[in-house]
Design a protein around this nucleic acid. Structure first.
Lengths: 210, 210
DNA sequence: GCTTTAATGTGATATATGTCACAACAATAA
DNA sequence: TTATTGTTGTGACATATATCACATTAAAGC
């Protein structure tokens, strides 16, 4: 599992800390963060100590100091831009959401045949323009929101354009390659997984009653 | 990490095997599956051996036999039904997709104010009806596709209706409880994570050149 | 039947990951 | 100043997870 989980945790720390900060706090304890992420306080401290993020033996951690360190560790590369390929319902849903505060912005949407010129102030272009656009705007990351049937060739095309990271919502497992990291969000799998968990705990309940 | 990863792997095995089967194959080797899931062949064998799924020392595993065992392990509980709360763009995107072959079906959509009576042959109801509907149809799992602002109270309401598993698409971390398991799909986090990975490997490239 | 080949099955091992328990310490109160 | 309290920081430990290496074995070829 490499240290992917660690990095994900660091990002979660960041989000929670930003939330705390916006609530007016300026210090946290390891157990606050532990509660928020549903992990142990000790692990929070281990993580921080590993990256030389220091706290005060009595007063916990300074939120600002931790955020500084986290931003440094996580890149802190300003506002990044991404594109969305596929502007059906899912694409539209994504286009309608404002991700600015999450550190990135949807620069444009692409579709074989865009039904409109823009949405939520984001321009929609035909697919043919993807390559020049990506090159000109130095886009590194994109989202696949097309039907399964065209997902594979869409991925191919995006990689061909020089995109280096893809978030894929089509229900098939696209494989990462050297030149492009692909993360798959498989809704079906998630639901199946939930059913499994739920059935599990039902069985457990039944057992403890009987 | 409990053995959640293991179960996820089992589900992935199942999906890949179904795909292989639909391609006309009837046997696989551990390394086929390893490649497909991007894990080692040894791990595939360990997993199978752990659940007493046996293969043939020369000819690999019989797809049908493995699928039988997997179905048994994973519940194989027929076609399950779920509901979607929130019928905006995201909700509509989900409603438009056919999940039958993934083992479940969207029984109904709910919204404060549904814009239409049905979509893709799935009825849309006002939120007030959620509870009686869930009770009558014995719904165990639901999807949250509402805006952040109302996500928390939506979750509360769903749990109140007796729903035991939630897949949450709103960009905030909802916590699982004893009576309801919640999985969060945080698109922002995923994108941030991708940027991190991409930047990482760019740095690595630069280093190896310089 | 014997040999070769190509796969499984698994014990030994490495590594990663998280928990526990407690010493070290800063702040506060007495 | 001293005692007390509550939190960090971390070594020791436990556990989970995955890899390696290879003995074992079924099939195919000769």
């Amino acid at each position: 599992m490499e240290q992917k989980d660690l990095m994900l945790r660091l990002m979660k720390y960041k989000r929670v800390l930003l939330q705390f900060k916006s609530l007016g706090l300026d210090r946290v304890y390891s157990n606050n963060l532990g509660d928020a992420l549903e992990i142990s306080a000790a692990l929070v401290r281990k993580d921080f100590s590993h990256f030389k993020i220091e706290g005060n033996r009595r007063g916990g951690y300074s939120i600002n100091r931790v955020l500084e360190k986290l931003n440094h560790l996580l890149g802190d590369s300003g506002l990044q831009e991404i594109v969305i390929v596929g502007c059906g319902n899912l694409g539209k849903a994504l286009l309608n959401h404002d991700y600015i505060r999450e550190g990135f912005r949807i620069a444009a949407g692409f579709d074989i045949n865009p039904s409109q010129a823009e949405l939520n102030n984001i321009p929609l272009y035909p697919l043919e323009i993807l390559k020049p656009y990506v090159l000109e705007h130095h886009i590194d990351v994109g989202i696949i929101a097309v039907p399964v049937s065209s997902a594979m060739q869409t991925a191919e095309m995006m990689i061909n354009c020089g995109i280096k990271g893809i978030l894929n919502f089509a229900p098939l497992q696209l494989k990462s390659r050297e030149e492009c990291r692909i993360h798959n969000v498989n809704i079906g799998l998630e639901i199946e997984n939930l059913f499994f968990m739920v059935n599990q705990s039902e069985k457990k309940d039944a057992r403890s009653i009987g």
